[in-house]
Amino acid sequence: MVDHEMWGSTPARGRTDRLVAAVVWLAATVVTAVFLWILADLLRHGAGQISWTFLTAAPASAGRAGGIGPILVSTAWILAVCLAVALPLGLGTAVLLAELTSAEDAFGRLVRRSLDVLAGVPSIVFGLFGNALFCVYLGLGFSILSGGLTLACMVLPILIRSAEEGLRAVPDEYRLGGAALGLSRGKILLHLLLPAAVPGLIVGVVLGFGRAIAETAALIFTSGYVDRMPGSVHDSGRALSIHIYDLGVNIPGGETNAYATALVLVAILLLTNTAASLLGDRLRGRHAES
């Protein structure tokens, strides 16, 4: 982690060294202060608002009053659709890239390159694409299904990268040992590689979940704005992030509930991120031991 023994031998001395040290400390202080400012602001204005009623009730008066019950349900549905599609597809591709294609395989390189580009595609472009393909071309309209499918395209690169890393961390002896016993590739994968790669897979799911739940721009014209309780995946549903945007920008007097909703969203994200990083540490720790 921190290489102090490495830097211990390079002494800080002279005016330049002291100046640089001061600037570095200052920068770190500013960044920390801004982070705490945002967090404190959210807590100060949002925490008082949060209650069981807020989490379960329907929004009233365009969101100024009432709660976020239907919005949480819509968010959960969108995420469920997203992961239900992205998980199998992403896992399959990760296995393909990690186990069945070598570094110089042209097909593997092409898939990898296109995933790199996909990871950089702006979310508003995903929104345009999702609107054109799912809402219009496939006729799904503004719906949870359209939003979830759009997000699935978006989280694929994250899922695949983590799953691939998890698979690559599995020692080769399992592959060779399995093959020498005449186990088929499928059995080696199912019984030996995937169980050993589980931590990496979980990290991928958590990161993908985080990216999806934070997303707004891709959902504006795919899952839409409707803040009623969705009846099915074909209904439009408003995600948490869209609710924050709408309350903040379009609804005068919506700030308090926007703060509370933002706090809920950030709390969910902090929890999942912490879980992912703890798991990641455990994964790396185990890797280092062996």
Partner: peptide, 12 residues
């Protein structure tokens, strides 16, 4: 059948 230099029981 094959036996390797480093024993390789599966993590089972």
């Amino acid at each position: 059948g094959m036996i390797f230099q480093k024993p390789n029981p599966f993590p089972l």
